[in-house]
């Protein structure tokens, strides 16, 4: 699913991202506010949905090679996080949807979770 489609489905605002980055294809997603969990269970190329708005959310996405971040509940990254996202070229969206709702919308439109998509790939 293209990031642009994710933006449309979640009625999200583009906090940062170029036109080209919005064309990025996202294969799977993971949602959490605890970055320890994201680091333990995440996988490269994923979309990160989170309500954690400090710089550690962006740093985690960078470390994990996540393709994009969606902040839920209308959150935005803090100044340091936004700067890091721009330096690392990680597109950032913000949606007013709650976490559960945002994940549900994406899942019902075919964007799988990390473990599910990993299993399907192996099969």
């Amino acid at each position: 699913m293209k990031l642009r489609e994710i933006q449309r489905l979640l009625q999200a605002e583009v906090v940062w991202g170029t036109e080209a980055l919005l064309e990025t294809n996202i294969e799977c997603a993971c949602s959490a506010d605890l970055m320890s969990d994201v680091l333990a269970f995440g996988q490269p190329g994923q979309l990160l949905l989170t309500g954690l708005s400090n710089a550690q959310s962006v740093r985690t996405a960078d470390i994990l090679e996540a393709k994009a971040i969606v902040y839920v509940r209308g959150k935005w990254p803090d100044e340091e996080g936004l700067e890091l996202a721009m330096v690392k070229g990680i597109p950032v969206l913000s949606t007013k949807r709650m976490m559960y709702e945002a994940c549900g919308i994406l899942y019902t439109h075919g964007l799988l979770g990390i473990l599910v998509s990993d299993t399907i790939k192996k099969e």
Partner: peptide, 17 residues
């Protein structure tokens, strides 16, 4: 620490993994 997004008790096991 949890407000910073850490402290899930996964750190050391994840380093080992």
């Amino acid at each position: 620490m949890r407000e910073m997004g850490f402290g899930a008790g996964m750190g050391l096991p994840n380093i080992k993994k």
